[in-house]
């Protein structure tokens, strides 16, 4: 198993590449979803204020 994680000596390059890709993509998905939620809530509040 240790042998696997060492990636033939390239661990310091392979794992950061995967970790950064995962981090950025999860960040993109979560912010897109979260912003949508916030705006849906804001819109509902505004519609309640309409006469």
């Amino acid at each position: 198993m240790n042998n696997y994680f060492s990636m033939g000596g390239y661990a310091a390059f392979v794992w950061p590449a995967y970790a950064l890709s995962a981090l950025v993509m999860i960040g993109l998905a979560v912010t897109a979803w979260w912003n949508l939620r916030v705006r849906e809530r804001d819109l509902a509040k505004l519609r309640d204020q309409l006469p």
Partner: peptide
């Protein structure tokens, strides 16, 4: 992600108009 973000932009425009 693009569809979610476009939906968000449409809602932003609606919020501004309201």
């Amino acid at each position: 992600v693009l569809l979610l973000r476009v939906k968000g932009e449409i809602l932003s425009a609606k919020i501004r108009a309201l």
